[in-house]
Amino acid sequence: MLEVQQLAVNYRGVCGLDSVSFQVSPGQLVGIIGPNGAGKSTLLKALLGLVPASGGVVHYCTCPLHQQLERVAYIPQRSQIDWDYPITVWNVVMMARTRQSGWFRTPGRAAKEIVKAALERVEIPNLCDRRIGELSGGQQQRVFLARALAQQADLFLFDEPFTGVDKKTEAIMLEVFEELRSQGKILLLSTHEWGQSLNQLDRLLLLNQCLIADGSPQQVMTPENLRQAYGAPLGNPLHQDLETSFFC
Protein backbone atom coordinates (compact mmCIF):
# COMPACT_ATOMS: atom_id res chain seq x y z
CA MET A 1 0.00 0.00 0.00
CA LEU A 2 1.28 3.44 -0.98
CA GLU A 3 0.17 6.15 1.42
CA VAL A 4 0.61 9.83 0.70
CA GLN A 5 -0.40 12.31 3.40
CA GLN A 6 -0.50 16.09 3.13
CA LEU A 7 2.31 16.17 0.56
CA ALA A 8 3.31 19.76 -0.26
CA VAL A 9 6.03 21.26 -2.45
CA ASN A 10 7.14 24.87 -2.56
CA TYR A 11 9.73 25.92 -5.08
CA ARG A 12 11.30 29.31 -4.42
CA GLY A 13 8.06 30.61 -2.95
CA VAL A 14 5.87 29.12 -5.70
CA CYS A 15 3.38 26.45 -4.68
CA GLY A 16 4.00 23.25 -6.64
CA LEU A 17 1.77 20.94 -4.65
CA ASP A 18 -0.65 21.77 -1.90
CA SER A 19 -1.47 19.17 0.71
CA VAL A 20 -2.07 16.17 -1.53
CA SER A 21 -3.24 12.98 0.15
CA PHE A 22 -4.21 9.62 -1.35
CA GLN A 23 -3.64 5.91 -1.00
CA VAL A 24 -2.99 3.29 -3.67
CA SER A 25 -3.50 -0.41 -3.14
CA PRO A 26 -1.42 -3.13 -4.83
CA GLY A 27 -2.66 -3.98 -8.30
CA GLN A 28 -3.96 -0.51 -9.07
CA LEU A 29 -3.20 1.51 -12.19
CA VAL A 30 -3.62 5.17 -11.35
CA GLY A 31 -3.49 8.10 -13.75
CA ILE A 32 -2.58 11.63 -12.71
CA ILE A 33 -4.16 14.26 -14.94
CA GLY A 34 -4.43 18.02 -14.86
CA PRO A 35 -3.53 21.11 -16.84
CA ASN A 36 0.02 22.16 -17.68
CA GLY A 37 1.82 23.25 -14.54
CA ALA A 38 -0.67 21.41 -12.33
CA GLY A 39 2.13 19.55 -10.57
CA LYS A 40 1.78 16.10 -12.17
CA SER A 41 5.51 15.58 -12.67
CA THR A 42 6.24 17.35 -9.40
CA LEU A 43 3.98 14.88 -7.58
CA LEU A 44 5.83 11.88 -9.03
CA LYS A 45 9.19 13.42 -8.17
CA ALA A 46 8.08 14.46 -4.70
CA LEU A 47 6.95 10.90 -3.96
CA LEU A 48 10.55 9.78 -4.48
CA GLY A 49 12.14 12.79 -2.81
CA LEU A 50 13.61 14.04 -6.11
CA VAL A 51 12.23 17.46 -5.30
CA PRO A 52 12.24 18.51 -1.64
CA ALA A 53 8.81 18.36 -0.03
CA SER A 54 7.88 21.24 2.23
CA GLY A 55 5.53 18.97 4.16
CA GLY A 56 3.81 15.62 4.28
CA VAL A 57 4.86 11.98 4.30
CA VAL A 58 5.05 9.22 1.71
CA HIS A 59 4.98 5.67 3.02
CA TYR A 60 5.17 2.40 1.13
CA CYS A 61 4.40 -0.73 3.14
CA THR A 62 4.54 1.39 6.33
CA CYS A 63 8.12 2.62 5.72
CA PRO A 64 9.18 5.92 4.13
CA LEU A 65 9.37 5.41 0.39
CA HIS A 66 12.66 7.28 -0.03
CA GLN A 67 14.30 4.62 2.13
CA GLN A 68 13.33 1.85 -0.28
CA LEU A 69 13.99 3.35 -3.68
CA GLU A 70 15.30 0.02 -4.95
CA ARG A 71 11.64 -1.07 -5.09
CA VAL A 72 10.71 1.78 -7.42
CA ALA A 73 11.04 2.13 -11.18
CA TYR A 74 10.77 5.71 -12.41
CA ILE A 75 10.52 6.58 -16.09
CA PRO A 76 11.28 10.25 -16.80
CA GLN A 77 9.70 12.44 -19.45
CA ARG A 78 11.21 12.11 -22.90
CA SER A 79 12.32 15.73 -22.83
CA GLN A 80 14.66 15.05 -19.90
CA ILE A 81 16.84 12.69 -21.92
CA ASP A 82 19.62 13.66 -24.31
CA TRP A 83 18.95 11.28 -27.20
CA ASP A 84 22.34 12.05 -28.75
CA TYR A 85 24.10 10.43 -25.79
CA PRO A 86 26.54 7.76 -27.02
CA ILE A 87 24.89 4.67 -25.58
CA THR A 88 23.26 1.55 -26.98
CA VAL A 89 19.79 0.24 -26.19
CA TRP A 90 21.28 -2.71 -24.32
CA ASN A 91 23.26 -0.50 -21.95
CA VAL A 92 20.28 1.76 -21.25
CA VAL A 93 18.24 -1.23 -20.13
CA MET A 94 21.22 -2.63 -18.22
CA MET A 95 21.16 0.54 -16.08
CA ALA A 96 18.18 -1.03 -14.34
CA ARG A 97 20.56 -3.50 -12.67
CA THR A 98 22.95 -0.82 -11.35
CA ARG A 99 21.73 -0.93 -7.76
CA GLN A 100 21.27 -4.69 -7.71
CA SER A 101 24.74 -5.35 -9.11
CA GLY A 102 26.30 -3.32 -6.31
CA TRP A 103 29.28 -0.99 -6.25
CA PHE A 104 32.52 -2.00 -8.04
CA ARG A 105 30.80 -4.90 -9.82
CA THR A 106 29.84 -5.45 -13.41
CA PRO A 107 26.44 -7.02 -14.05
CA GLY A 108 26.51 -10.83 -14.14
CA ARG A 109 24.81 -13.45 -16.29
CA ALA A 110 21.52 -13.22 -14.36
CA ALA A 111 21.35 -9.48 -15.06
CA LYS A 112 21.93 -10.10 -18.76
CA GLU A 113 19.07 -12.64 -18.84
CA ILE A 114 16.74 -10.14 -17.15
CA VAL A 115 17.68 -7.40 -19.63
CA LYS A 116 17.21 -9.76 -22.56
CA ALA A 117 13.77 -10.81 -21.32
CA ALA A 118 12.72 -7.19 -20.82
CA LEU A 119 13.76 -6.26 -24.36
CA GLU A 120 11.87 -9.26 -25.72
CA ARG A 121 8.76 -8.27 -23.77
CA VAL A 122 8.67 -4.85 -25.40
CA GLU A 123 9.43 -6.44 -28.77
CA ILE A 124 12.74 -4.75 -29.54
CA PRO A 125 15.40 -7.47 -28.92
CA ASN A 126 16.72 -6.86 -32.45
CA LEU A 127 17.55 -3.24 -31.59
CA CYS A 128 19.83 -3.98 -28.64
CA ASP A 129 23.05 -2.92 -30.40
CA ARG A 130 21.60 0.25 -31.89
CA ARG A 131 22.46 3.67 -30.54
CA ILE A 132 19.52 5.08 -28.62
CA GLY A 133 19.35 8.17 -30.85
CA GLU A 134 18.77 6.05 -33.97
CA LEU A 135 15.41 4.81 -32.68
CA SER A 136 11.97 6.29 -33.25
CA GLY A 137 10.17 8.02 -30.37
CA GLY A 138 8.00 4.99 -29.72
CA GLN A 139 10.97 2.61 -29.72
CA GLN A 140 12.83 4.90 -27.32
CA GLN A 141 9.89 4.85 -24.97
CA ARG A 142 9.85 1.04 -25.17
CA VAL A 143 13.53 1.03 -24.19
CA PHE A 144 12.65 2.92 -21.03
CA LEU A 145 9.73 0.59 -20.40
CA ALA A 146 12.17 -2.33 -20.71
CA ARG A 147 14.49 -0.60 -18.25
CA ALA A 148 11.60 -0.28 -15.79
CA LEU A 149 10.72 -3.97 -16.24
CA ALA A 150 14.34 -5.01 -15.75
CA GLN A 151 14.38 -3.24 -12.40
CA GLN A 152 11.83 -5.81 -11.18
CA ALA A 153 10.29 -3.12 -9.02
CA ASP A 154 7.07 -3.13 -7.00
CA LEU A 155 6.10 0.46 -7.66
CA PHE A 156 6.20 1.99 -11.15
CA LEU A 157 6.05 5.73 -11.79
CA PHE A 158 5.72 6.87 -15.41
CA ASP A 159 5.99 10.56 -16.31
CA GLU A 160 3.99 11.23 -19.49
CA PRO A 161 4.55 7.74 -20.96
CA PHE A 162 2.18 8.20 -23.91
CA THR A 163 3.74 11.40 -25.24
CA GLY A 164 5.04 11.03 -28.80
CA VAL A 165 4.51 7.28 -29.08
CA ASP A 166 2.98 5.31 -31.93
CA LYS A 167 -0.12 3.12 -31.65
CA LYS A 168 1.88 -0.10 -31.45
CA THR A 169 3.99 1.21 -28.59
CA GLU A 170 0.90 2.43 -26.78
CA ALA A 171 -0.69 -1.01 -27.15
CA ILE A 172 2.45 -2.74 -25.82
CA MET A 173 2.60 -0.32 -22.91
CA LEU A 174 -1.02 -0.94 -21.99
CA GLU A 175 -0.45 -4.71 -22.19
CA VAL A 176 2.58 -4.44 -19.92
CA PHE A 177 0.67 -2.22 -17.50
CA GLU A 178 -2.06 -4.85 -17.38
CA GLU A 179 0.46 -7.61 -16.66
CA LEU A 180 2.09 -5.60 -13.90
CA ARG A 181 -1.30 -4.81 -12.41
CA SER A 182 -2.21 -8.49 -12.36
CA GLN A 183 1.08 -9.17 -10.55
CA GLY A 184 -0.03 -6.82 -7.76
CA LYS A 185 2.30 -3.97 -8.64
CA ILE A 186 1.35 -0.34 -8.12
CA LEU A 187 1.47 1.88 -11.20
CA LEU A 188 1.18 5.66 -11.27
CA LEU A 189 1.35 7.55 -14.52
CA SER A 190 0.99 11.22 -15.31
CA THR A 191 -0.61 12.06 -18.61
CA HIS A 192 -2.10 14.92 -20.51
CA GLU A 193 -3.47 12.57 -23.20
CA TRP A 194 -7.23 12.21 -22.88
CA GLY A 195 -7.72 9.40 -25.37
CA GLN A 196 -9.08 5.92 -24.99
CA SER A 197 -6.12 4.96 -22.81
CA LEU A 198 -7.75 6.70 -19.83
CA ASN A 199 -10.45 4.05 -19.87
CA GLN A 200 -7.79 1.45 -19.06
CA LEU A 201 -7.02 3.09 -15.74
CA ASP A 202 -8.52 1.98 -12.44
CA ARG A 203 -8.38 5.43 -10.96
CA LEU A 204 -7.70 9.02 -11.83
CA LEU A 205 -6.26 11.76 -9.68
CA LEU A 206 -7.27 15.16 -11.04
CA LEU A 207 -4.66 17.64 -9.95
CA ASN A 208 -4.16 21.36 -10.04
CA GLN A 209 -1.67 21.97 -7.24
CA CYS A 210 -4.19 20.40 -4.87
CA LEU A 211 -6.09 17.19 -5.46
CA ILE A 212 -9.41 18.15 -7.05
CA ALA A 213 -10.90 14.71 -7.56
CA ASP A 214 -9.94 11.10 -6.89
CA GLY A 215 -11.93 8.16 -8.17
CA SER A 216 -12.79 6.07 -11.20
CA PRO A 217 -12.43 7.83 -14.58
CA GLN A 218 -16.20 8.23 -14.80
CA GLN A 219 -16.37 9.76 -11.31
CA VAL A 220 -13.50 12.15 -11.93
CA MET A 221 -14.18 13.37 -15.47
CA THR A 222 -17.29 15.35 -14.64
CA PRO A 223 -17.90 18.82 -16.08
CA GLU A 224 -17.72 20.37 -12.63
CA ASN A 225 -14.35 18.77 -11.79
CA LEU A 226 -12.91 19.68 -15.17
CA ARG A 227 -14.05 23.27 -14.81
CA GLN A 228 -12.44 23.41 -11.40
CA ALA A 229 -9.16 21.96 -12.67
CA TYR A 230 -8.86 23.71 -16.00
CA GLY A 231 -10.51 26.96 -14.99
CA ALA A 232 -12.28 27.44 -18.32
CA PRO A 233 -15.97 27.19 -19.11
CA LEU A 234 -17.08 23.95 -20.66
CA GLY A 235 -18.15 25.83 -23.77
CA ASN A 236 -14.46 25.80 -24.65
CA PRO A 237 -14.18 23.66 -27.79
CA LEU A 238 -10.98 22.11 -26.47
CA HIS A 239 -12.80 20.58 -23.56
CA GLN A 240 -15.69 19.42 -25.69
CA ASP A 241 -13.31 17.61 -27.98
CA LEU A 242 -11.49 16.08 -25.11
CA GLU A 243 -14.62 14.97 -23.37
CA THR A 244 -15.96 13.44 -26.53
CA SER A 245 -12.80 11.50 -27.08
CA PHE A 246 -12.84 10.28 -23.50
CA PHE A 247 -16.44 9.19 -23.19
CA CYS A 248 -16.80 7.62 -26.61
Binding site: L48, L50, Q80, I87, M95, W103, T106, Q151, L157
Partner: peptide
Amino acid sequence: KLFYKELLFYTFDKTGAQAIGL
Protein backbone atom coordinates in the same frame (compact mmCIF):
# COMPACT_ATOMS: atom_id res chain seq x y z
CA LYS B 1 36.80 2.24 -13.99
CA LEU B 2 35.38 1.48 -10.55
CA PHE B 3 32.35 3.77 -10.81
CA TYR B 4 31.77 3.53 -14.55
CA LYS B 5 28.24 2.13 -14.46
CA GLU B 6 27.10 4.61 -11.82
CA LEU B 7 28.64 7.54 -13.73
CA LEU B 8 27.07 6.27 -16.95
CA PHE B 9 23.64 6.27 -15.34
CA TYR B 10 24.21 9.65 -13.69
CA THR B 11 25.39 11.38 -16.86
CA PHE B 12 22.71 9.82 -19.08
CA ASP B 13 19.68 10.22 -16.84
CA LYS B 14 20.34 12.26 -13.72
CA THR B 15 16.76 12.12 -12.45
CA GLY B 16 16.58 8.38 -13.04
CA ALA B 17 19.86 7.89 -11.20
CA GLN B 18 18.54 9.89 -8.27
CA ALA B 19 15.30 7.91 -8.39
CA ILE B 20 17.07 4.58 -7.85
CA GLY B 21 18.92 6.08 -4.92
CA LEU B 22 22.38 6.72 -6.39
